[in-house]
Amino acid sequence: MLTLAIAPPSLRHTLMQGEHEVSGQDGLVLSTILGSCIACCLHDRSSAIGGMNHFLLPAPPNGLPGRSDDAERYGLFAMEVLVNAMLKRGATRSTMRAHLYGGANLHVGMRAIGSENAGFARAFLAADGIALAHEDTGGGDARRIEFQPATGRVRCRAVVGRLREEPVRAALPADSGDVELF
């Protein structure tokens, strides 16, 4: 533990599926690797902060086409916690710019879950009035994303021939939506 405490502060944070982070720290890079998952990078120039999430919608029941209600709620939650974290740090929806990455369809001939996830994120941004400045989604290759939240700069590289494993599709936690009456 002592060695951790005296190590220089890391300026690179890796985001795993289901996580999000918002920061205005100079030099910080948020990094993630995406297959069919989506990362939304938000940057607000007026407040010099940015944030990124990394999510995958839950599978619809019985493999039915289209998005299930669960998927809709989960995706909305993943986007809303990111947007709320940005708003709390002084960003506004009208000054935020979004980049979308990921949503690859890793297996030819199988359900295009990557495209479905990208479509969800695009629809969310449109409905919530957040401008989509750049999108690099779909295709058959995984991507490595490096995002500087303070500046909004993004580097997206293909990770060819790797990441053939589908990530575990998210599910809503059993206690989600629990109600406490006072």
């Binding site: 209600d69 709620r73 939650f77 809503l172 989600s176 939506g177 629990d178 109600v179 009456l181 006072f182």
Partner: peptide
């Protein structure tokens, strides 16, 4: 609660739990 809220629900909401809470209040 101190401000006078009746209940607290954490997102993402569950439609069945929300409906039950609405019926109760």
């Amino acid at each position: 609660r101190a401000a006078g809220a009746t209940g607290w629900i954490v997102k993402p909401f569950d439609p069945a739990k929300l409906a039950a809470a609405v019926r109760r209040v």
